[in-house]
Design a protein around this nucleic acid. Sequence first.
DNA 1: AATCTAACCGACCACTTGGTCGGTAAAAAC
DNA 2: GTTTTTACCGACCAAGTGGTCGGTTAGATT
Lengths: 204, 204
Amino acid sequence: MDKNLKRMATMHRMQVTGMELFYEQGYYNTSVDDILKSLELSKGAFYYHFQSKEDFFISIIQNLIVQKVYSTLIEPIEGNKNPLTVIEKSIDNALQTAENNEMDYGFVVHNFLTEFNGRNETISRYLRDILKIWEVNIITLLQKGKTDGYVIRHVSSEAVASFIISSYMGIRTLMVEGNPRILRYNYISQLRSYLNTMVERELA
Amino acid sequence: MDKNLKRMATMHRMQVTGMELFYEQGYYNTSVDDILKSLELSKGAFYYHFQSKEDFFISIIQNLIVQKVYSTLIEPIEGNKNPLTVIEKSIDNALQTAENNEMDYGFVVHNFLTEFNGRNETISRYLRDILKIWEVNIITLLQKGKTDGYVIRHVSSEAVASFIISSYMGIRTLMVEGNPRILRYNYISQLRSYLNTMVERELA
DNA sequence: AATCTAACCGACCACTTGGTCGGTAAAAAC
DNA sequence: GTTTTTACCGACCAAGTGGTCGGTTAGATT
């Protein structure tokens, strides 16, 4: 069973490096050779573990990207607290991480989605599914927030969710080459004022 | 001077086709040969008119993309009317155009910005400049809206502008593979309620 | 000790990439 | 009517591209 460990270790190394390079340079602009050179591995090793470049990328989505989205955007909003506060906080945290990342190139899912949208149905489906999971979680949270008396009932949870996701994807792109500190501060201030429009004020 | 006309015509044909293919498939995923094949022109023709693929793309930005942004997003908000109404309307129109476009791949500027961000400083600067122009126009409009009594004074025009731009960029990406009709409707409803937070109510 | 196999090597393949360059037909300039 | 210039052709180039395949080696299995 030691062999299996080595297999997993090598595949994981490849995925991590592949993810880095794809994220930095884009999928089409990164060759398999680029990744292999950076890993000091050979073509043989690559095609022993993966069927194709596309297959390799899909494994990266499933193993690394899904996990990242879960840990930064989904898990932080689980629970029974005030949805509006929790959402704002999770997004602020995600933006802070980006801000502190010297090599930030934007929201991973979004960048790849842009690159594959309408060009590779298989891959873009995987990516859209990830966004969908995030979306569903926000919607569920908001619905629960209504019954718990945090959120006013007449807003459309679906509409709010996709508005939040949209604005997040956009600000992440702007932050790449702009002043991330100011952009984040401004963004959060506006997000807050937007979220405030749907706060349920308790009856006095 | 007839020659100059032909020159311009050919260059323009190339730019239009190049724009189409780059937009549909991405810059790195579209070869010069692809464009030439679609135009039934030769390598010689291409490199007679343009120095390089990059030079060609820059000419597309300057001739086609800038113009498109101006006509759809900037000119519609010029004037002395209520900024909040005007902005909402211009964005709704832009989204409607996208919705009716069978071959929509998202917001042109944003897609290319994502592809070049951190990878080609020259090109991403051009693209960021376009966004900057849009941003400045929104900011100016909002400031004027304050003095004209449409917009409450204590909001940050900069923050509002980048929030609007962010959300627009994001929703355009979501619309590519989602249900554009519903997404647009929902988005506009949320944008409206966001913009409503900064309406100056006239003193009774 | 002999065998087998997982993991990896690297030469090789057909094809594509952005870009060059000598040529050419037709129109403009003289 | 000759020369020059414009606009374009297409063969060619070096450097990649994703992918194949016959080998090699270290360690597990027998």
